[in-house]
Amino acid sequence: MSGPIQGHRLAATFAQTKAENRAALITFATVGYPTPADTADVVRALLAGGSDVVELGIPFSDPLADGATIQHASQIALEQGTTLKMAFDVVRDLRAEGVETPLVFMGYYNPFLHYGLERVVTEAGEIGLDGFIVPDLPPEEGQEFGTLARSHDLDLIPLLAPTSTESRIQANVQAGSGFVYCVSLTGVTGAREQLSATLPDFLGRVREHTDLPLAVGFGVSRPEHVATIAQLAEGVVSASALINVLDDTPAARRYAALTDLVREMREATAHGQ
């Protein structure tokens, strides 16, 4: 198999999108939603539209950084018995099919902690996961997980918010790797009509402290949003808007509709417009 070696897929992807003079499109699926059996197909639909990275949301009973859409998806997934083990199985299946797109887990800390951090990174390394985004694990608390992840060539992706101070930006980017997830607004996840006006200023402050690629997420709902962010950052994350497509489309056309929206977003990723 000739794909980039695991653990460096994220870096390779950002290098490639840079060479193509565009932003990377990062998309999201809640594991176990709409049903556990659908998860791999949802990811395939995201990949068919041209996603450069896919985040697999690990459902948690108390998703305090999430708005109504992801809360609901998480709850439905849990009611159907979704577990972290199922998320590992999805990644294993996709890698067995030859999928080489970077895949990362996005989830709250407790399910990882309970599974056992050592066990999480070991299995993740074995099956070809690329990293973790843990919204309730700031660098002060994430040292152990970060060290373990690095020892398996996995990225612990740092999150920053518009409220982050200089010292917090510094602490976060130093502790993390892969890319920097810049939360576009002061708030929780969820589709929004408009992007925050303070975004350029925020990204400028982050850039002073890191050479890692910056990806902007939270509220990114339409191809126009993607186009705007592509002028400012190396990556764009869309999540809730994609789940809304699953919710709003009759089951028979669900995956096609998802692929269509992802494709439109992907077509809006060009830099320098």
């Binding site: 305090l64 919204p135 309730d136 608390e141 920053l160 409220t163 002061t186």
Partner: peptide, 14 residues
């Protein structure tokens, strides 16, 4: 104890 919360509120906690 500790501070297992989203980055957005950490400056306010500080």
């Amino acid at each position: 104890g500790g501070r297992y919360v989203p980055e957005t509120v950490i400056p306010a906690l500080e």
